[in-house]
Simulated scan of single mutants.
Amino acid sequence: MKAKKTFLLVMSFMLVVSILAGCIGNKSTEKNTATETKDEKKSLVVYSNSLSNGRGDWLKEKAAEAGFELELVEAGGGDLFNRLVSEKNNPLADVVFGLTQMDFESLKANDLLIPFKPTWMNEIPEGASEKDNFYHPLVEQRIIMLYNKDVYTKETAPKDWTDLIENEKFKGKYHVPGDLGGATNRAVVYGMLMRHVDKNGDLGISEEGWKDIKTFFNNGYKAPEGEDVNANLASGKVPISFTFSSGLPGIEKEFGFEAGVVSPPIGVPTIVEQVGIINKGKDQDTAAAEDFINWFGSAEVQGAWAEQFGSLPVNTKAVEKATDRMKQIGEITTVQELDYTFISEHIDDWVEKIELEIF
């Protein structure tokens, strides 16, 4: 009887020990699972044409600190847009940023975007986002005409793009786009063409508008392949040129001079780099993409981006972090009012006409 009681006591003790061990094991497992969840990063494939000059490395590093693991895919604007369209039936990207408002309008028309309202919408100017929230603005690039201050003063320099066409003294003194594949070069063209909209005209443009564009290209200087247009500007060889706003500080630093900036009364064409979520189908989980855009477009991150890369953020709270030169450009130039839906519908035909008939 005594032996039986002893046996029962031993078995009871072993059972308690087993239960305790199981509890400890479960807590340990729960702790490990919690740690793994906490350490797990949100993985995203991000397409962009705005990753050059260290931007991609910077973004990847800062995003990792914020809990994102990014696979970045970089290409030029046109190539990136075409890739997104070609992948429509099997989308690989989660997020795209850097393309212009016209490109995003075309992506929307191709049902490649899904709407989303970022947390920072109240920090950007009213009406800056697409009306149905399919895409939102990040960085503003004003397309500005420049002049060499050793050759021209503010009084003798051109006051508008039309001066280059109408005044013979500027003939051969200004750069014209060497091709129309890039967003900046296209902006120069549509900024002038949109002054001559005629719904009954050739491709929506009046005869006078096409005449002006032809004169603009014929009287300008088209740099041969391998020749640096910025070096020409700095040396005075071709003392009038153009660039996108955030590119100016780099030009001035590289060549050791300060360019004059032309501020036409009508304003300057403006490319606004946008961000959006790619439509990957009805079962898509967009939580990570939304979190990334909320983080990337925030005043803190856009301010740091502006400070690091000399951009002009659309986020009004981030503008204070922009460089003095960017703030100055933002103050001395105004934005040309343009119908980007109309431009988006016609730009490819305009480019084709110019390339076939003028170049």
Score class of each variant (00 low, 15 high):
Val73Trp: 00
Ser311Thr: 15
Ser86Trp: 03
Phe359Asp: 09
Pro313Val: 08
Ala21Arg: 05
Gln308Gly: 01
Lys88Asn: 11
Lys154Val: 12
Thr33Phe: 09
His346Ala: 01
Ser12Tyr: 00
Leu112Thr: 04
Glu273Ser: 13
Ile124Met: 04
Ala109Phe: 03
Gly330Phe: 06
Met326Gly: 02
Glu61Ser: 15
Glu352Leu: 03
Glu320Met: 02
Thr215Lys: 14
Asp348Leu: 06
Gly330Val: 03
Asn167Gly: 00
Leu20Met: 10
Ile271Cys: 05
Thr286Met: 10
Thr162Pro: 00
Gly330Glu: 08
Tyr221Gly: 07
Leu233Trp: 12
Gly181Phe: 07
Lys211Arg: 13
Met192Gly: 10
Leu338Arg: 11
Gly250Phe: 12
Ala287Gly: 00
Phe97Pro: 03
Val275Asn: 02
Ala75Asn: 14
Val197Ile: 15
Glu337Tyr: 05
Glu140Tyr: 00
Glu71Trp: 02
Ala187Tyr: 11
Leu92Trp: 04
Pro137His: 05
Ala318Asn: 06
Arg325Thr: 13
Ile124Cys: 01
Gly77Val: 03
Leu80His: 08
Ile266Lys: 11
Thr37Tyr: 09
Glu252Phe: 08
Val73Gly: 06
Gly172Thr: 12
Asn133His: 13
Met326Trp: 01
Val261Ser: 01
Ile293Val: 12
Thr341Ile: 05
Lys317Met: 09
Pro264Met: 08
Pro177Thr: 01
Asp39Thr: 07
Met121His: 05
Glu30Asn: 13
Asp57Trp: 00
Gly22Asp: 10
Val319Thr: 12
Gln284Leu: 11
Val151Leu: 04
Asn110Cys: 06
Thr6Cys: 05
Ile165Ala: 01
Pro115Glu: 11
Ser106Tyr: 10
Asp163Met: 02
Glu126Ala: 08
Asn110Thr: 02
Glu357Leu: 09
Trp210Asn: 06
Pro125Ile: 07
Lys31Asp: 11
Glu30Leu: 10
Asn26Tyr: 14
Phe359Arg: 10
Tyr190Arg: 09
Arg55Asn: 03
Ser48Tyr: 05
Asp111Asn: 15
Ser28Met: 12
Glu357Arg: 03
Leu312Trp: 14
Ile205Phe: 09
Tyr190Glu: 12
Gly330Arg: 11
Thr184Ser: 12
Glu227Gly: 00
Asp198Gly: 04
Ser245Ala: 13
Val85Phe: 10
Phe7Arg: 13
Glu307Ile: 00
Ala3Ile: 04
Gly181Thr: 11
Ala93Pro: 07
Gly303Tyr: 11
Ala299Phe: 00
Met14Gln: 03
Ser50Gly: 01
Leu72Trp: 05
Glu87Pro: 08
Ile205Leu: 06
Ala318Gly: 01
Ile251Cys: 11
Lys41Ala: 06
Gly77Thr: 10
Tyr152Gln: 00
Glu69Phe: 12
Phe7Trp: 07
Ser311Pro: 00
Asp150His: 02
Ala306Arg: 09
Lys4Gly: 04
Tyr135Ser: 02
Asn110Arg: 13
Ala75Val: 04
Gly330Lys: 08
Gln336Asn: 02
Glu345Phe: 00
